[in-house]
Design a protein around this nucleic acid. Structure first.
Lengths: 195, 195, 195, 195
DNA sequence: GGCTAATCGAGACGGTACGTCAAGTCTTCCA
DNA sequence: TGGAAGACTTGACGTACCGTCTCGATTAGCC
């Protein structure tokens, strides 16, 4: 039973919350993660810095929520084949990573997360956790269909897919298309499937 | 014809160069990339800030040279099998990425590179270029042995391998061992090889 | 006729009033006037900030009331001689100014009062007014005894005594003793008396 | 022999120094001591905040130097009589304390000095020290002329004069004129002189 | 051997952002 | 309505780096 503490004092203003997240997305998209400052977000949102620090303790947490909260997690694909499911998953991943705000924010975000043990564990559970669960579900169905062995390491595959997409998006800069998703999904499918 | 301009004035001191790189490696390893400042490197190296700016125009370039110049690029492996070669390559990659200074510097470095088109192209040619050539050589031999198709996209595989290792090293933080290298190499080998 | 407006709603709690003044005295004594904040007083008193602002509009007024309301104004001395009366007055002044809370509050308080015309006139009537009346009474008796001329400027003498004590207490910091009071009273007595 | 340390690095710019002091005087005069911020002085002077903090560690020290460095200390008066000398000294004091910048700065300045032991001792030696020496000189001549006893406490008299003028200027606000100086000098002269 | 020119250590310079703190106002619930 | 709590906007705090600049003092090649 979660005994919610009785809220005392003036409640936080939801519109302020939304304004801050919106401003953060705008600024990150415009000037990039490194050049995004809490002060600038506050100014754009029409709030004070304290109001931001009251909710997020670091720029990384703020930008992470701003960029990836809007992103709805797609439902786990169920196309009937491992290849189809993986292609769908990778396509979704590419879509998420190449959205303007995400593309602008991701490298810096990852750097900040990597530098802080606290944030690192946080992202593993919140961001990668659900994705890992979805991937496990896909694998389970593939095993039932006899397409894959039961011992496939979902962790490794997830890191591989996400890392590949991230690395490509971050370092190529060119518009990344459907072909990357297809090729990558094909590579991994063949790496996994029973033959 | 490279008409080297006759150097006028006092020549640059090589010992200063080395001292700066050494100080940069030390500081990055100790406090991380983000907390590394040019001022601190200068102080540790016993030089002035200008002496650093005269050689490197950004922190990213300085740290990149400091961290990856020491790293000698391993020779292209030739074990006689695609699986063996890839395992060796991935092992080398893991070794490079998990070295203390590299692990501390990489995420931040990648973020800065991703944010700057100029740096981005630079790293693709200097850092990934040789690796891509090595990978292509391994593939070529695999094709000759009949282990792989000729149309294997070295670019994609390189991004996949590097991205997977980077992602894992950056976000897990735990000591990454030989098993990652083995599993990853196996996954990719099976994804590529003719069957 | 003071037509007291019929109080509507919940009446103010006297205990809250007292708690705020007590907290203000404590905090001023502990950390000094400049470092005393309304927020800290509210926290110590267990009240909200609004409850303080509802009663006092500035920190100066709050601290003034907190520190000098407790101080009971001593009765006008009547020792039978000008020298004796002045010594008693100066001693009382030294006592008031060197009390811990007063010593901590006075310089800052004076600065705030000096900066605001509204507060300035207030203090002249409330704080210095009674003292001036007492001094005038002492002078009157001295004139009747033939010790002083009738044209002695009480204002000037009061500023002189208060200023001297304040300046000494504020800038010396050392424990100010009876000798200051004696010497100062003697100086002024000789400056005034008929000879 | 004062072995001046060899100046290393870029020397401080005297014009910047002067610009800061000038800006400080302007702002204090315009908005008062309390409302004067280092940031505002920096903006007005066209410098960065660091450039100010490099020279003065507190607002009090900056404003003190800005306001009282311009003030040249008047020569010790020698009119031939104790009354004349004291009148001249008090007049000078009134002049110093009523100058626009000084009047605006003094109360707050005194409060900050009183709150800090370090600053307190500083002001006693730099500001009051010379004044005390001048007063002592005046007394010495008066003793030689037989006008005063040799045991006159210069400290006490100085605090009395300065305190009286300060208190009056700070709390009256009205234009303080020559009559205050005359009356005060007369009071103290009579309090001191041999009769 | 003086001249020219670049390098070196040092640190001042004008900026910008940091994260904290307090100001005074407001909005909620409870008495 | 009063009161406690705490969110809100504003703006200063003092610190740290940024990248540029200006010093005096080297340290080379050139005439």
């Amino acid at each position: 039973m979660t005994a919610v503490a009785t809220p005392r004092g003036r409640p936080r203003d939801e519109r302020v919350h939304a304004a801050i997240l919106g401003a953060a997305v705008d600024i990150v998209t415009e000037v990039g993660y490194a050049a995004t400052s809490i002060a600038a977000v506050a100014a754009r949102a029409g709030t004070g810095k304290d109001t931001i620090y009251r909710r997020w303790s670091t720029k990384a947490e703020l930008v992470y929520e701003a960029v990836f909260t809007a992103t709805e997690s797609a439902p786990v694909p169920d196309t009937g084949s491992l290849a189809g499911d993986l292609t769908a998953l990778v396509s979704a991943l590419v879509g998420e990573f190449t959205a303007p705000a995400a593309a602008a924010a991701l490298p810096g975000l990852l750097a900040d997360f990597a530098a802080s043990p606290k944030l690192r564990t946080g992202i593993r559970s919140h961001f990668l956790g659900p994705a890992k669960a979805g991937l496990a579900e896909v694998f389970e169905r593939a095993v039932q269909r006899g397409e894959a062995h039961s011992a496939v390491p979902a962790d490794l595959v997830l890191d591989t897919l996400a890392g590949a997409v991230f690395f490509h998006v971050g370092l190529v800069g060119a518009p990344v298309g459907q072909d990357l998703a297809d090729q990558l999904a094909a590579l991994v499918t063949r790496g996994i499937e029973v033959r």
